[in-house]
Design a protein around this nucleic acid. Structure first.
Ligand code: MN
Ligand code: MN
Ligand code: ZN
Ligand code: ZN
Lengths: 154, 154
DNA sequence: TTTATTATTGAAAATGGTTTTCATTTGCAA
DNA sequence: TTGCAAATGAAAACCATTTTCAATAATAAA
């Protein structure tokens, strides 16, 4: 019988990964986190649920999730990587980012995403042909000043 | 009389920066580098021209150039930042990137950039309004497998 | 030109996110 | 139940980048 346990158990089994308490909790944290969270914050939340968990395991689990495309890793340039579940039930829809160069705030936006995806797909197929490059995903970031910061500077 | 010395002397003076041998060489390296180069490689090239230069100064100069928008800093997620001169005579035109997830190769492309910029500008003005966000620039990356890597995997 | 001010410098040490090592534990197939 | 490779956490190592600090040098002022 299928469907027992969280949705990701099947995925783990597909990949031959063991289902361990640490991994259960890390998945739980990722699943219940709205924003792009960093390893240290995942560790803090996970550790609160079970102090036996180590930061090392957080990193190891994230790496494994990233390599199979269950998680997307972001490098916004503020010194630490951030992670988001993708292509999974319960994951945020695909979105792009506005990044404040002053306070480092990151805004997710999905407003015009359909138009963007449309456009991206066209570009993508042109690029694939021209460079024989197999495109699996993309990342679009806008950099600038958020409302608060531009007010503060006025 | 204007126009003496390299183009960036004026810019430095505008900002009140002193023109030093180290900075001359670092600008020279940036100017003569086609790809997105990292700090360490800049240091190696600069050091070859003048062994008195220190890596610290490379970092400091890059930070200063980045903050005034003469250089764009990229974080492609491979553990070190990369830099490119922008908005300057002799700088590469604005372009976007294809990043191989396997070998980390980075391909600059400018082919369809005009259409992209067009599109980006529209999105940008919509986003600015919606989020009161002052957009200064953007970054578009496609992730996937380069020709060599996808052949190697076949 | 000389001088005074202060930005800039490089070496060395510190920082901090991430990875590696390694001895121990544990999931799970048989 | 057992056997064993996979997984674990603590501690150490790694390594790109930043900070510290005393010495030096670019430039404005005299
Ligand atoms: Mn996001
Ligand atoms: Mn480039
Ligand atoms: Zn801000
Ligand atoms: Zn490749």
């Amino acid at each position: 019988m299928r469907g027992r346990g969280p949705w990701w158990h099947d995925r783990f089994q597909e990949y031959g990964w063991r289902i361990t308490p640490s991994r259960e909790i890390i998945m739980d944290v990722l699943h219940n986190t709205k924003e792009h969270i960093n390893a240290s914050d995942i560790y803090i939340k996970a550790h609160a649920m079970n102090p036996a968990i180590g930061l090392t395991t957080v990193y190891r689990t994230l790496e494994m999730l990233e390599k199979t495309g269950m998680v997307q890793k972001f490098d916004f340039g503020d010194g630490m990587a951030r992670y988001e579940l993708i292509n999974n039930p319960g994951a945020k829809d695909h979105h792009h980012h506005l990044i404040c160069m002053n306070c480092k705030r990151i805004i997710d936006y999905t407003e015009f995403i359909d138009d963007e995806i449309d456009f991206i797909e066209k570009t993508q197929s042109k690029l694939s042909k021209k460079y024989n490059f197999k495109i699996a995903g993309h990342m679009i970031n806008f950099y600038g000043l958020c409302e608060q910061c531009s007010k503060a500077m006025a």
